[in-house]
Simulated scan of single mutants.
Amino acid sequence: MGKVYLVGAGPGDPDLITVKGLKAIQEADVILFDRLINEELLQHASEFAELIFCGKRPDQHSLTQEKINELLCAYAKQGKVVTRLKGGDPFIFGRGGEEAEELSRHGVPFEIVPGITSGSAAAAYAGIPLTHRNYSSSVAFVSGVSKQDGASESYWEHLAQGPDTLCVYMGVKKLPEICGKLMQYGKEPSTPIALIHWGTTEDQQTVTGTLADIREKSHLIQNPSMIVIGEVVRLRDQLKWFEDTPVQELFPAEAIVG
């Protein structure tokens, strides 16, 4: 019996991979990788490793989740070291829990290697602290799409009146609905909001506004993007650093991990 590593590859900047995650890439016989990972990380794989693309785009999957689960188990049962390389953190909207459940059912040994999730990383690279003692003492990570009844009135009422900062994953298509529900249930129309596209990469773009006007300001922003909502967004003007730094200083050729 081999072993499966469920690895968080981080949010995009390849230097944000963990040391343990990098080792799992280097030691793998098989790597199943997602669309949102930085493929520079695959340069650290063995020349003999089998690389399998498992990318998912909205409404378009190269492999179904069931097929991915099947492959993880099958390769491990062949005695191979398998690294499942996922964007961000595998247990934060990464379906890593589902994959771990399947491995457990089949008696396949596995390890979880946490990664830096895009909710915190994209905000940090945009100069937005998710908590700040003057602005926010709580934060919630929220999915824009869910099997749960995410459109229920009680759900949005809870979010509007609960956490100080909201980080919304996969929410760009539902941005008007998200903003409308939050305002309906008590968030001020002037509440700051930021959309961060391709956070932590050289293609990062950030658009800020309010719940009332962000739709008009961000109509060109597409997925993948993080949405951050709350008073902490006001700090961006003072703390933004990444997009003002020359690319050659942020991504020097010799800085890639390994």
Rank of each mutant, 00 (worst) to 15 (best):
L175T: 06
M170S: 04
T201A: 10
A122G: 07
S154Y: 00
T201L: 11
V81P: 01
G119C: 00
T191N: 09
L159I: 10
V247I: 12
V172L: 12
Y169V: 06
L32I: 15
Y185F: 14
C179G: 06
E111W: 00
P90I: 00
Q161E: 02
R57K: 15
Q222W: 02
V19N: 06
K56W: 02
D244S: 14
Y185C: 11
M226E: 02
G144K: 05
P58R: 12
P176N: 07
G97L: 07
L175D: 09
K181W: 01
K174A: 11
G171F: 02
R35H: 12
D149H: 11
E99M: 04
G150W: 10
E101R: 13
E202L: 13
Y155I: 06
P11S: 11
G162D: 05
I25T: 08
I227V: 12
H197K: 15
M183K: 13
N223P: 14
T83D: 01
I196S: 12
E157K: 15
H197R: 15
D29H: 05
D164F: 03
Q148R: 13
G96D: 01
D59K: 15
G97H: 08
P163W: 10
K56S: 05
G115R: 00
R234P: 05
S118Q: 05
I229V: 13
Q43E: 15
F48M: 14
P163R: 13
A45H: 14
Q148A: 09
P11W: 06
E98F: 09
P189H: 05
S62D: 08
E101C: 02
R84K: 03
L72W: 05
G96L: 01
G127I: 06
G107Y: 04
D13I: 10
K174M: 08
